[in-house]
Design a protein around this nucleic acid. Structure first.
Ligand SMILES: [Mn+2]
Ligand SMILES: [Mn+2]
Length: 553
DNA sequence: CTATTAACTG
DNA sequence: TTCACACAATCTC
DNA sequence: GATTGTGTGTCTCAGTTAATAGGG
């Protein structure tokens, strides 16, 4: 792989000697150092080799590789490179090509090459008219081979081929694919301020080379699924090819959720294409709702009432979440009827208040506020913001406390395991303390805690607190009007499933003159309660928390 | 020719 | 990419 | 009424540049 001529120099590049214009290379070296420190023994051998050889490349070659990696690609034209800080780009290209991390004029199909050419260039190069034609229309009439393109244009076409070595390093560093090297810049420029959390004793999110491989396979398959979705012409067969690529189900792995979500989405696509058997197979692999609901519906649609009954019964007795509980409750009577079994009596429909008033062009929530009037107190349109902000502040220190595998790099908005099962269990002691604090001390002391937390962290990126103007005042009101017991039981339910229980709160809240409060969910015509809203409303009813639904005509 | 969009940058 | 929502089309009861 | 799918607004870090679409 490495010829003598390009054999590594003895001394690796020392990133601390880099000047500011190589900021992006400094950042990448930080990634390498961090990943080596945390995951040295489980990195794939090819990635370890990559690191070793990368460190020994000359500065220009290192810099060019990272510059190219930050481009969209996949094909990049040499004549479009303008990097004054890199002295000899041609030499850097030669070095990268020598170690096979880069291909010059690679054997790819012509569409990748054409994507780098402008309409004017294509027109001039191949004599096709460009005026009045959209790009797709122009390309439709054009038939050229890659060889012809290479012969026609003077520039070289570059393709990075080190993705398979580089990606595991970035996966290991970020722990997910939703961030890239731009996180360094965005943070440095102050566009995003991250919360403070402990990084001194980092613990691993990946525990073996297999873990890293499995996660990479999942994400690669996921992006192929997204490509399939984006193309309306793509045949179902292309999608079905992905199914065997989905990693063997990794129970208790952090990426189980993403895995099951991908399975559910492919299953849904199969349903739309009429591939019921395929869909059933896929859903059977997934534990994530609505997999079981879809199976019950498909059994029902094919009149397999016995299978529908068996599965629906399992859902009823051990619902994975509110949506399964909700579905089993309303769908079971239908199945029982088909089987000739007696159905339990229907629950009475909740009483709904109908309101009229407000300007018809306004949003239903605003119309309801006007119609409800302010005789008993002011209304505020807070929806999910209020309780998430309140609880997000109260549990701020818990969320950003040390926990196994929670924090691995400096650009995290939340702990990696925020929405994973076991989030509470891993922080049980602290959570109990914070819950107990809710009903200890004086009202003003607790209010002080909230306000100080707001002031200390205002503006920092986080999953729950939106730092809106006037938000702190609303939270003070909430603290004064909502009894501590109400907050505590809401907190318990919120903590039990942060992903699902962070939404579904009622639209409006009223601070009543009598010191109390009331929650109101507004429904306009054509809108109905969603399962997560029903779940909270039912919970509020059980706990004696004042909440109702109003319908705006 | 102008408005919109995508890519790129720090 | 992700929601939360409004609304339309289609089918079933 | 139930179900499913679609579109919309919101939110993406902010600012510059080049390419494209589309109208006159
Ligand atoms: Mn709402
Ligand atoms: Mn509503």
């Amino acid at each position: 792989m490495y010829s003598l001529k390009t054999a590594p120099k003895k001394e690796p590049l020392r990133p601390e000697t880099l000047s500011g214009q190589f900021y992006y290379l400094q950042n990448f070296h930080q990634v390498l150092d961090s990943v080596e420190a945390l995951y040295e023994d489980i990195l794939p051998p090819s990635s370890r080799e990559f690191i070793e050889h990368f460190r020994h490349l000359p500065l220009d070659a290192q810099a060019l590789l990272i510059r190219l990696h930050s481009r969209k690609g996949p094909i990049i034209r040499e004549d479009k490179l303008s990097y004054p800080e890199i002295g000899d780009v041609a030499e850097a290209i030669r070095l990268l090509a020598d170690v096979r991390w880069l291909q010059v004029n690679p054997p790819v199909t012509e569409d990748y090459l054409l994507a780098t050419l402008t309409k004017a260039e294509i027109s001039a190069g191949f004599g096709v008219p460009q005026h009045g034609l959209s790009r797709p229309a122009m390309l439709a009439t054009l038939h050229v081979t890659p060889a012809e393109i290479y012969a026609t244009f003077a520039t070289r076409f570059l393709l990075l081929t080190c993705h398979e070595y580089l990606q595991p390093l970035l996966d290991a560093f970020f722990g997910s694919r939703d961030q890239d090297l731009s996180a360094f810049i965005v943070s440095e420029l102050g566009h995003i301020r991250y919360p403070d959390y402990p990084l001194e004793r980092r613990s691993r999110r990946f525990h073996s080379t297999g873990d890293l491989q499995e996660y990479a396979d999942l994400e690669d398959t996921y992006s192929r699924y997204r490509e399939w979705r984006a193309d309306p012409e793509a045949p179902l067969e292309d999608l079905l090819e992905l199914v065997p690529l989905i990693p063997a189900i990794a129970r208790n792995r952090p990426w189980r959720y993403r895995c099951d979500r991908l399975i559910n989405r492919i299953g849904r696509a199969c349903e739309r294409a009429g591939e019921v058997e395929r869909a059933l197979e896929l859903y059977a692999m997934s534990e994530l709702p609505p997999a079981r609901e879809r199976r019950v519906r498909l059994f029902a649609a094919t009149h397999d009432w016995y299978s529908a009954y068996t599965l629906c019964l399992q859902m009823q007795e051990a619902p994975a979440d509110y949506s399964e509980r909700h579905f089993a409750r309303f769908f079971m009577p239908r199945i029982l009827k088909q089987l000739g079994l007696p159905a339990a009596s229907r629950r009475p429909a909740p009483r709904i208040q109908r309101l009229e008033g407000g300007k018809p062009e306004d949003r239903p929530e605003l119309r309801a506020m006007q119609a409800l009037g302010t005789d008993n107190g002011d209304w505020h349109y807070v929806e999910n913001w209020l309780f998430n902000a309140w609880l997000g502040l109260w549990f701020w220190d818990v969320i950003y406390s040390d926990a196994p595998g929670a924090f691995t790099h400096p650009f995290q908005i939340a702990p990696h395991d925020l929405y994973e099962p076991g989030f509470r269990q891993r922080r049980e002691k602290l959570i109990r303390q914070r819950l107990a604090m809710l009903e200890e001390g004086s009202l003003s002391e607790r209010q002080q805690v909230l306000l100080e937390t707001w002031q200390a962290h205002e503006g920092k990126a986080n999953p729950f607190v939106g730092w809106y103007e006037g938000g702190a005042a609303l939270l003070e009101k909430a603290h004064a009007h909502i009894p501590a017991r109400h907050i505590r039981v809401i907190a318990e339910r919120w903590l039990s499933d942060l992903r699902n229980h962070r939404s579904g709160f009622p639209d409006l809240i009223q601070w009543r003159h009598d010191g109390g409060y009331e929650l109101v969910e507004v429904k306009g015509p054509g809108d109905q309660l969603r399962p997560n809203q029903t779940a909270w409303l039912q919970f509020f009813g059980e706990e004696g928390i004042p909440a109702r639904v109003v319908y705006v005509a």
